[in-house]
Simulated scan of single mutants.
Amino acid sequence: MSPVRPTRSAAASAQHGRVIPDATVARLPLYHRALSSWVDAGISTASSEELAAACGVSSAKLRKDLSHLGSYGTRGVGYDVRFLAYQIARELGLTQPWGVVIVGAGNLGQALVAYRGFASRGFEVVGLLDAHPDVIGQVLGSPEAPIAVGPMSALEPLVASGRAHIGVVATPAEAAQDVCDRLVSAGIRSILNFAPAVLTVPEAVEVRKVDLAVELQILAFHEQRRAEMQDPSMDPESLGEAIYA
């Protein structure tokens, strides 16, 4: 997952007397996920080395990241797992619920609304909207949290009610910008974009982009490099021909 534009987390944190780099903000969810799993497992303390290993970062980077939040570790003891998890959750804004409205009830939208991980992390899908008459009214989602697909006309009232805080674009690329514009016009200031398109938004709006095809292409790049290292005589073009044969 990568930001479409630089985030303003540093500026926002500066309002609270400290600056947290964007790279640190991007790693905080990893720390929180590991800590939360340890809380569930009954683990009370952990060293920086243990937490760093669980998150795939160096202990030095972990300690530097956490230093931006405050001093929560004890020399020779480590971190209080539950307390640190709470502090990171508070910094990420996870100590309050956030309403999510998903636009696009196709295969991706249906998969997202059925994902049970949202609720466990404090996110509630409060709306699933689509412009296609054939899907409006269909009940989707999990058995525990079914949701009926609503028309696009329901977007503005939903946002105005204060229930929706984050918008998710799960439409084809050609519809993404129009949907984004409508979300912004309705008052949404945080958008997660799954469409293969670059969205243009005002300065005050944050956009995060998830492009699975791009991630696969990056993995393909590394696979090709590994193949070339194992067989230096291999021609990249011949590898491509083998793939597309």
Rank of each mutant, 00 (worst) to 15 (best):
P3N: 09
P3V: 02
V4T: 14
R5Q: 10
R5V: 03
R5I: 04
T7E: 12
T7G: 15
S9A: 13
A10H: 10
A11I: 01
A12T: 00
S13M: 10
A14C: 05
Q15H: 12
H16R: 13
H16E: 13
H16S: 12
G17W: 00
G17L: 01
R18P: 00
I20V: 15
I20G: 09
I20T: 15
I20R: 03
P21G: 09
D22E: 15
T24L: 07
V25P: 01
R27D: 11
L28E: 02
P29W: 08
L30I: 05
Y31M: 07
H32L: 08
R33H: 10
R33P: 00
R33L: 02
R33F: 01
R33G: 05
A34W: 00
A34T: 05
A34P: 05
S36G: 06
S36Y: 02
S36E: 10
W38L: 06
W38G: 10
A41V: 07
G42Q: 11
G42M: 04
S44Q: 13
S44K: 11
S44P: 01
A46N: 06
S47G: 12
S47F: 01
S47Q: 06
S48M: 02
S48E: 04
S48I: 07
E49Y: 02
E50V: 04
E50M: 07
A54K: 05
A54T: 05
A54D: 09
A54Y: 05
C55K: 08
G56C: 08
G56R: 04
V57D: 00
V57C: 15
V57I: 13
S58A: 06
S59F: 11
S59C: 06
A60C: 06
A60E: 14
A60Q: 14
A60V: 06
K61H: 08
L62P: 00
R63H: 05
